[in-house]
């Protein structure tokens, strides 16, 4: 029996790293990375938290994470394509700075 609480705590840790990157970091590529770490954290809390069900791993959370990974990679592809176009049209400075607020 693996203590799955460890994974829930680690997931929360990843979420906080992702939020930190999203709020504090300025470079768009690094913020995109932060969003990815954030979603990995949520997935980890999902799988870690769902293992209480008796009789082996629960299939539903796994299916959810599987879908979530696909969504995350499409979002990343879109975001990186946008970053490239911003760089092409508006130059280096706009990729490296300016926060969301």
């Amino acid at each position: 029996m693996i203590p799955s609480q460890i994974y829930v705590i680690a997931g929360a840790g990843l979420v906080s790293v992702g939020v930190f990157a999203w709020v504090v970091r300025r470079h768009l590529v690094r913020r995109m990375m932060g969003v990815n770490i954030l979603s990995t954290g949520v997935f980890m809390m999902l799988i870690g938290g769902a293992r209480r069900v008796e009789g082996g791993p629960d299939g539903v959370p796994q299916a959810m994470v599987l879908t979530g990974i696909v969504v995350a990679v499409s979002a990343t592809a879109l975001g990186l394509a946008l970053i490239q176009r911003i760089y092409d049209q508006r130059g280096e400075r706009s990729v490296e700075e300016r926060g969301p607020m």
Binding site: V29, M32, L80, Q84, Y87, D88, Q89, G91
Partner: peptide, 17 residues
């Protein structure tokens, strides 16, 4: 995808846009 973007950001802006 990330490596591809880094490669793109190495070029001068406007080179292919």
């Amino acid at each position: 995808l990330f490596l591809n973007t880094l490669g793109h950001l190495e070029q001068r802006p406007g080179e292919r846009g």
